[in-house]
Write a protein that binds this DNA or RNA. Structure first.
Lengths: 344, 344
DNA sequence: GGGATTCGTTTTACCGGTAAAACAAAGAAC
DNA sequence: GTTCTTTGTTTTACCGGTAAAACGAATCCC
């Protein structure tokens, strides 16, 4: 079981071929005869040989690894949001023979510029960055840099950075149109303002409401908190109720905040949807199970993961030079939204 | 911004020292004068030089990377259980200059023996494996192998595998003693039977109940399902209620199932804790927020992450040859458990 | 003050692969 | 039958570092 670790040289010697023939076999080079391939492989199998990845990486100038940076939230992994994206990324990377190097965007990680060192040291061929809010200014380092970098489900309007994201503005339109179409004209908005996509959603939602052909709606908005949590949604709803007591609909920037809003309404004897319609964004699993079911905008985050990984791989292979993809979203109507109550 | 990537050779030339002096500086070798160190570092800083990790790994025979394998559950990352462990592992690894390579134990991952290839190719120096249930028989490959391997929060009674886990048997004792001490003698147990630690918990719980000095308790047990979920706990409670209608306490193998149990009891007009005491395991955040607060056994999973990582690093450095650590747990009493109702 | 140490740096010998260019043998072209 | 391709394999030249051994100069020891 011990015994010196075999190298490609040992395989070459034992199989009677040259070093590079073995290398070619291992890399599935087409110009190798089947007979040779078989002979070499039999020796490879015999010793369970596995080429040294450092040597391979050094010679081929590629680590076949992508770096994945996730946000440093306390309960970061508890967020289904991330889980879906990571699953998508992993699935894609694995299928292309790439490994995923995980990093958490801790203060130390940022301060020591690990995000640059990872790429400069060639530990990873490219980076997928999920961990960004509006303060991630250090990402400017990737503008016009030779490093392969893609922002995942986020974007920076001011910066020239690649991204793959759900189309938050489109989601805002779908949501606004749904509520406006149901006759709502006094709407409370629980926004997320610590991400650019969140701001985009808010602005587009407000714009559509203000310019609705059948009559503009009045929108009061409050911030739902950094965490986009159920708890934040609960608190935000209390503020909204004070700000606009006669609102007939509440739009939350994600489902968790929407569920928090529903909870507040239940606690305060307001019926959903008879008194107030509530709407979320994401379509998390829970959205279908709350009572009434939550109307929402479906965001396919697994797909965001898949696409992000596709893009970074294309960038690495040089097949594309940049990317800025917005993935479509769709309206999911459940029981939490209904026609606005007649004016009383 | 472009320009050829600098190598250690360039730094050597420009700073006027030899190749290895630069290498020694970069590795903080003690036998280098401060003057030399400063001169070399100034050139390093100037070019923002970062040594090639593949070359480094090849020459030093170490990747300074640990492989982390997580279970392939659909919502794997949504489980706080994992989040805490991963955070602990990452924190420790990063502080020791190690990177974390993420893998998901998909069918493909197992079938192609990636778990072996990762170590055989030296892509990682050691492996932390969270993804194990009682069926993970292929892990036998690591018995008596030269590969550094540690099971995280799990163990295999039959196999000679390193592990770092919470002491589930101790948890079972603490829980049983708490309930028995409150006078409960008819107890329903919702067990998790797809992990060895789950079985250990069940068996120890049953043993303590049967041998309690003040009078043995009768325990009816059911399986809570593969997922250890709230939903599973809900369904299991229904089964328990049928099996032992007069039970006065329910013990669930984790908090999520316990919360599912509380939900069923609430739906069926049984008061907690007046009619039925309920107890969980883990002490997830939610446990403190349900009503009444859930009595539970605290499992410090962040610490499990820290310790696991400590151990794998020690194994890698050759400081230890094996490990089998059981971390202590503690009783957390909240409102969901009370004295057993008087017989009537 | 001569031999043994210590200190700071350099020499040297790899680490284990890849990939482009070179090459021999076999087939195709005419 | 000679020349041109194609095919399959080998030669060669690295890839960019590390670490042990070697080395000269300075320091210590008594």
């Amino acid at each position: 079981m011990t015994g010196k670790r075999k190298t490609i040289k040992d395989i070459a010697k034992e199989s009677g071929f040259s070093l590079s023939t073995v290398s070619l076999v291992l890399n599935n080079h087409p110009r190798i005869s089947q007979a040779t391939r078989d002979k070499v492989m039999s020796v490879v199998k015999k010793y369970n040989f596995c080429p040294n990845s450092a040597a391979r990486g050094l010679a081929s100038k590629s680590s076949r690894t992508i770096s994945l940076v996730v946000p440093n939230l306390t309960r970061v992994f508890s967020d289904i949001y991330l889980g879906e994206i990571i699953s998508g990324i992993y699935e894609r990377a694995a299928s292309q023979g790439f490994k995923v190097l995980l990093d958490i965007a801790t203060a130390q990680f940022i301060k020591s510029q690990e995000y640059l060192k990872l790429l400069a040291s060639r530990r990873a061929d490219g980076m997928l960055f999920i961990a960004s809010d509006i303060h991630a200014d250090y990402l400017s380092a990737f503008e016009d840099s030779p490093y392969k970098f893609v922002l995942v489900n986020h974007l920076f309007p001011g910066k020239k950075l690649n991204y793959v994201s759900v189309d938050y503005a489109a989601s805002a339109r779908l949501a606004a149109e749904h509520l406006l179409g149901l006759g709502h004209r006094r709407i409370g908005l629980i926004a997320g303002t610590n991400t650019h996509t969140g701001l985009q959603f808010r602005d587009e939602f407000l714009r559509v409401c203000q310019t609705w052909p059948a009559g503009a709606a009045e929108v009061a908005w409050v911030d739902g908190g950094e965490e986009w949590s159920q708890r934040g949604g609960y608190a935000a709803t209390a503020k909204l109720a004070a700000k606009m007591p006669d609102l007939s609909a509440i739009m939350a920037a994600n489902d968790r905040m929407a569920i928090g809003a529903m909870r507040w309404l239940a606690d305060n004897r307001r019926d959903v949807p008879d008194d107030v319609s509530v709407m979320g964004v994401d379509d998390i699993q829970l959205a279908a199970y709350v009572n009434p079911g939550l109307s929402t905008i479906r965001h396919d985050l697994y797909q965001v993961g898949i696409e992000s990984c596709n893009r970074i791989l294309q960038l690495i292979r040089g097949e594309i030079a940049e990317c800025s993809d917005l993935l479509p979203t769709s309206l999911v109507v459940r029981g939490s939204t209904a026609r606005a109550p007649a004016k009383g």
